Computed example of a mutant assay.
Amino acid sequence: MRMLAGALAIGLAWAAPCGAAEVPTFQVDATWPKALPNDWIMGQAAGVAVDAQDHVWVIQRPRTLTDDERAASLDPPRSKCCKPAPPVLEFDQAGTLLRSWGGPGAGYDWPGNEHGIQIDPKGFVWIAGNGPEDGQLLKFTADGRFVMQIGRSGPQTDSRDTARLGKPANVDFDGGANEVYVADGYYNHRIIVFDSETGAFKRMWGAYGTPPTDGALPPYDPSAAPARQFANPVHCVKIARDGLVYVCDRTNDRIQVFAKDGTFVREFFVARNTRANGSVWELALWPDAAETFLLNADGANNEVRTLLRATGETVGAFGRNGRNAGQFHWVHNLAVDSRGNVFTTEVDTGKRAQKFLVQGSFVLRKRTP
Rank of each mutant, 00 (worst) to 15 (best):
Q44S: 11
A46M: 06
V48Y: 03
V50T: 07
D51G: 09
A52N: 14
H55I: 00
I59V: 15
I59N: 02
R61A: 08
P62E: 06
R63M: 10
T66H: 10
D68C: 04
R70N: 12
A72T: 03
S73F: 07
L74W: 11
R78T: 06
K80G: 11
C81K: 14
P84I: 05
P84F: 06
A85V: 05
P86D: 07
P87I: 01
P87D: 03
L89C: 08
L89K: 04
D92A: 11
Q93T: 13
Q93H: 12
Q93A: 15
Q93F: 08
R99V: 01
S100H: 15
S100I: 06
G102A: 03
W110S: 00
G112H: 05
N113I: 04
D120Q: 05
P121D: 06
G123N: 09
V125I: 11
V125A: 02
I127K: 01
A128E: 04
A128C: 14
A128V: 02
G131K: 08
E133W: 06
L138G: 02
L138C: 05
K139H: 02
K139A: 02
A142Y: 13
A142H: 13
D143M: 05
F146I: 01
V147H: 04
M148T: 04
M148K: 14
I150P: 02
R152G: 07
S153C: 11
S153A: 14
S153I: 10
Q156A: 07
